[in-house]
Amino acid sequence: MDRLKFQIIILAVVLSVSVSCGDKRSMLKTLTEFTKTEIVLPEDLEVCADGIFRIADMSTLKPMKMIVYYDSTECSNCRISHIMELEPLYRLSKEDGRFDVLIIFSPADEDIETVRLQLMYQDIPFPVYLDTFKTFSLMNSSIPQDIMFHSFMMDMDGKPVFVGNPTLDDVLNKVFEEVLYKCYI
């Protein structure tokens, strides 16, 4: 009977380990697939800087870009209200000098006007991009739906090379530094 109990315990341990590893493995698989895709920045993205909207000029940006993407499934108004949480990322970008940050909102059609007004009148000290014509979301349908993958770094070839916000965690920041170093050598 003791042997039976022991075997059941072993089986339970093996199953629980395999389930927990499965989550990471599935994420790794998604990330690996994601890194094989190419992110396209359309020419009709609008940018709001100092409360004024204009068509963004991507040619003035650094080749490496950190994208923070809010698609139409997210509450854009809520995200804009808390947009200052991303200020450290901009600070890091300025201090580091090797990459630019693009916060891209792609709200639903019915929310576009509200988002525009909010971006214009909320005193945001950095540029924010608006996918007014849904071109970014249409051209980049390869971005996984999981919100975890909506903050990512793209390299000079437009390929995602890192996922996450490096300013939120030291370990993540270390990985981010490694990625930047690898991309620049």
Binding site: L28, T32, G164
Partner: peptide, 19 residues
């Protein structure tokens, strides 16, 4: 099977994200 052909940086990225 899973340790085959895995980019260590991507693995570290996932590890850091799932802490």
């Amino acid at each position: 099977h899973s340790i085959r052909d895995i980019d260590p940086i991507l693995e570290a990225n996932v590890e850091a994200l799932t802490r």
